[in-house]
Amino acid sequence: AELLKFVESENAKAKLQSSIHLFTDLCFKKCVPSITTGSVSQAESTCMQLANCVDRFLDTNIFVVNKISQSMQK
């Protein structure tokens, strides 16, 4: 049972890491359109620093789940 719990928690960790890679890829493409030497742009900063990109993606996901649920009940 101890081992099982350990394996389960490792699986959960691997899933979490896979989501983090997915979101980082998504946010990097969305927030950093090109590599400029020097300081970070204002838009890039708002998008990435505050992690708005992840938060809005998760909001989008919740919106879609609700939308699908509604259209299935029709």
Binding site: L26, K30, C31, A43, T46, C47, L50, N52, C53, D55, R56, F57, D59, T60, N61, F63, V64, K67, I68
Partner: peptide
């Protein structure tokens, strides 16, 4: 849907939708 619509609709993610 989430991937496609996030891509198309949320061009500059702000502090809320």
């Amino acid at each position: 849907i989430s991937n496609n619509c996030y891509e198309k609709c949320i061009l500059t993610p702000g502090s809320s939708l």
